[in-house]
């Protein structure tokens, strides 16, 4: 046994548990705003993640307990449940989690080895495979728990009247129909709140609160969330200032869709991100910019997942370009 002979009481498990705790404010607001159905989805996702993680560990002949107890699979599961519409059938949640744990994580060698963010890979897979189901978002307070349960457990999907366009969808459709931003926001469909989607903006605030907790606990550094918000805000701000009738404000983008969840919980995944502070900023800002572009010019409900995967591809390049210089060394000694 060699030096150092002492260790700080730190563990991967503790890091993951802190992330789960930080997700709780957002989940509580979610339940308050949109009903308890999300809890069922979280349970389905968690069970699927643990079972598939155990299966893959067994197949790969790895010790079960260390990897199962590290909590990383649960974090992935919760993120997937939170980014899917809350009334998707159970098997869609399971499919997403399986794609993440089996495909994006273990086929690449398990925790620490995967190049793509598992939750984002899962989202992209299911949105491409089931675009209709993935666009059925319940209107914020229009669905009671019994109906949610009925839909989640695979009952007949008579969803007219209980689903509604999300804020991003409504905005995109409105703009495409040559309406201006102000009239879309004031159209009174109950879609929009004070900043983003009605109700959803509070859930975003919950994620923000949890994210600030992660910053305080130093699980994440400011470079990633700030970079993501700055990247998206820069694009949104420039276009909004140039043409406020045709482009919604940065605030609308921050409070809508998955911006807050992505800024604090998704681009902050250390495994699939960059290493140096500058690299982190570039990675997150790039994701923010691409997400805005897809939101504005694309056809998908949100563009964050694609943006993150695209930036995942750029990680080796960013890492190569942003290696820090050791103390006292000259710039050209960069690795």
């Amino acid at each position: 046994m060699s030096s150092p002979h002492i260790r700080r009481p730190a563990s991967v498990q503790r890091v993951m548990m802190t992330v789960l705790v930080a997700l709780l404010p957002g989940i509580v607001v979610y339940v308050w705003q949109a009903g308890a159905g999300i809890l069922v989805n979280l349970a389905i996702a968690t069970a699927t993640a643990l079972a598939s993680e155990a299966l893959m560990l067994r197949l790969r002949k790895r010790p079960l307990w260390i990897a199962l107890s590290d909590g990383s699979a649960i974090v992935t599961a919760w993120l997937i449940a939170l980014i899917l519409p809350s009334i998707v059938p159970w098997w869609l949640t399971m499919t997403g989690v399986l794609v993440a744990i089996v495909g994006a994580k273990h086929l690449y060698g398990g925790i620490g080895q995967n190049p793509f963010n598992p939750a984002m890979a899962a989202y992209c897979a299911v949105i491409v495979a089931y675009p209709a189901l993935m666009s059925q978002w319940p209107s914020i307070d229009g669905v009671d728990f019994a109906t949610q349960l009925h839909l989640i457990l695979g009952g007949s999907r008579e969803i007219d009247g209980i689903t509604g366009a999300t804020a991003l969808d409504a905005m995109r459709t409105g703009l495409r129909n040559q309406n201006d931003v102000r009239s879309i926001l004031g159209s009174g469909t109950g879609t929009f709140g004070f900043a983003g989607g009605r109700g959803w903006e509070w859930i975003a605030a919950g994620y923000l609160a949890g994210g600030l907790f992660l910053l305080v606990r130093r699980v994440i550094t400011w470079h990633l969330p700030f970079g993501f918000i700055a990247g998206m805000g820069l694009m949104a701000g420039v276009f909004w200032l140039a043409a406020p009738n045709n482009f919604p404000s940065p605030l609308f983008h921050f409070a809508s869709g998955g911006t807050m969840l992505a800024a604090f919980f998704i681009v902050t995944d250390p495994v699939t991100g960059t290493s140096s502070p500058l690299g982190k900023f570039i990675f997150a800002a790039g994701a923010g910019i691409i997400a805005w572009v897809i939101r504005t010019f694309g056809i998908y409900p949100d563009g964050i997942a694609f943006a993150v995967l695209l930036m995942n591809i750029c990680v080796p390049l960013i890492n190569h370009a942003t290696q820090p210089v050791p103390v006292g060394q000259r710039k050209d000694s960069r690795p």
Binding site: S72, G112, P270, V271
Partner: peptide, 18 residues
């Protein structure tokens, strides 16, 4: 356990290594 690239080691390295 496997490295998760959390970067804590980078933060504490007095020589500024990775």
């Amino acid at each position: 356990q496997p490295c998760i690239r959390c970067g804590d080691c980078v933060d504490v390295c007095p020589t500024g290594l990775q």
